[in-house]
Simulated assay, not measured.
Amino acid sequence: MRDRTRTRMMVETVPGLDGLTTEMTTWRRDLHAHPETAFEEERTSDFVAEKLRSFGLEVHRGLAKTGVVAVLRNGEGPSVAFRADMDALHIHEETNLPHSSRNPGRMHACGHDGHTAMLLGAARYLTENPVFQGSIAFVFQPAEENEGGGRVMVEEGLFERFPVERVFGMHNWPGLEVGRIALRPGPIMAAYDIFELTLTGRGTHAAMPHLGTDTILAGSQIVSAFQTIPSRSVHPVDAAVVSVTQFHAGDTWNVLPATSVLRGTVRTFRPEVQDMVERRMGELASAIAGANGVEADFRYERRYPSTINSAGETELARRAAVRVVGEGAVDLDPMPSMGAEDFSFMLQKRPGCYIWVGAGPSDHGRNLHSPHYDFNDALLPIGVSYWVRLAETLMPKAA
């Protein structure tokens, strides 16, 4: 098995991190062992708030139920926000590690435990080494997975209570080598939508299909037709994914059910493509259902917008990244991901940049959302160093 901690790139972390890295590792593994899912991050929120208070920071709680925001003020100057996500996933862990989940059916399978530990480490380091003038809001967000905690924090007044000028986030990225950082201006992650299609016909004996209307047949045709949208309705240089992930129909062998339900997800980057895909899905569902003599009830819900980095803030993030991993290890043109991020809601309100930090090989199932995934602790000093260098890049030096 490969050594995940081996760093091939030349990484220059900020000085004095040895002891803090050991502490962050302890924090991260404690959080990993006690995963909590969307808006239920009570223990996690308590853990984060207690650490932040122990650093001497001003701590605020209650946004989006379990969110935590700590503010570090050091004189007059710019005000920025650094964000980490805290929630876990509904996955049964299969790593068999000493710090495996103690909460059955819940797991930190996306590295939010590591993101939280790195931002806590940055908060402590910057509190002890306030080399800048200005203010930093450390935002610990709940419910990134599926439930839009970032949207809720914004709606509940995040930027009114903490009027920052810019906002920044990061995510560990398996498959990208440890010691590399990837970022790009413009879209870096896709919009995330969901859909549900209910087909209603006349159920009948499976041996007498002519007496009913077959919702399974209609649904099967619709599944195939949906796949023609990316290939025939979307411009070839644009991107779209339409995935039917659920097909619920029937309960036994010899009955054609009166109802079938299809559910799934759509991913796009441009709003015009998003609009067109939604429209075409509704048209195809209605037309094919009608041709099969069944009724279609199509529901489409827009969950997360595309994550779009602003050009100026991406350049500032690049400068900070170069100071940590070097010019040659910063990828400025990574292929955008069709995955989604609710940090996008914060970027809709404030300019900013979202980066990917290399997490090493993704073999042996160690990819995001896998039951075999575990955050690579070798990233902890890299993440803290990026946050520190970003603070120094964004704000003037302390007098």
Score class of each variant (00 low, 15 high):
1 M>R: 13
3 D>F: 08
4 R>N: 08
7 T>C: 15
9 M>R: 15
10 M>L: 14
10 M>I: 14
11 V>H: 04
13 T>N: 13
14 V>G: 04
15 P>Y: 03
16 G>Y: 05
17 L>S: 07
20 L>W: 10
25 T>D: 12
29 R>A: 07
32 H>F: 06
39 F>M: 10
40 E>T: 14
44 T>W: 05
48 V>P: 01
54 S>E: 13
55 F>K: 14
62 G>H: 04
64 A>W: 00
66 T>F: 00
67 G>K: 07
71 V>M: 05
73 R>V: 12
74 N>S: 12
75 G>L: 11
77 G>V: 11
80 V>Y: 03
86 M>G: 00
87 D>P: 00
87 D>Q: 09
87 D>M: 04
92 H>G: 08
92 H>A: 13
99 H>G: 06
100 S>N: 07
102 R>T: 14
103 N>L: 00
104 P>D: 01
106 R>I: 06
110 C>S: 12
114 G>A: 11
116 T>I: 11
122 A>V: 05
124 R>S: 11
124 R>W: 10
129 N>G: 10
131 V>F: 08
136 I>C: 10
144 E>R: 03
148 G>N: 01
152 V>M: 06
155 E>G: 00
155 E>H: 01
156 E>G: 02
157 G>S: 08
161 R>V: 09
161 R>K: 15
162 F>H: 08
165 E>Q: 14
171 H>D: 04
177 E>F: 05
177 E>A: 15
178 V>A: 13
189 M>R: 12
196 E>N: 12
198 T>S: 04
198 T>C: 02
198 T>K: 13
204 T>Y: 00
206 A>H: 08
207 A>C: 02
219 G>A: 11
223 V>Y: 00
224 S>Y: 04
231 S>D: 03
231 S>A: 14
235 H>E: 15
249 A>Y: 11
250 G>A: 02
252 T>M: 12
259 T>E: 15
267 R>S: 11
271 P>D: 06
274 Q>M: 10
276 M>T: 13
277 V>S: 08
277 V>H: 09
280 R>G: 03
287 A>T: 14
289 A>L: 10
292 N>E: 07
297 D>P: 00
300 Y>W: 05
313 E>R: 07
314 T>M: 04
316 L>M: 12
317 A>E: 02
321 A>P: 02
326 G>L: 08
329 A>R: 13
335 M>Y: 10
339 G>E: 06
343 F>H: 08
347 L>S: 02
350 R>I: 10
352 G>E: 02
353 C>H: 05
361 P>I: 07
363 D>C: 11
364 H>R: 15
370 S>W: 02
372 H>E: 14
373 Y>Q: 10
373 Y>H: 07
373 Y>N: 03
376 N>Y: 06
379 L>I: 13
380 L>P: 02
381 P>M: 01
382 I>S: 07
383 G>W: 08
387 W>K: 12
391 A>D: 01
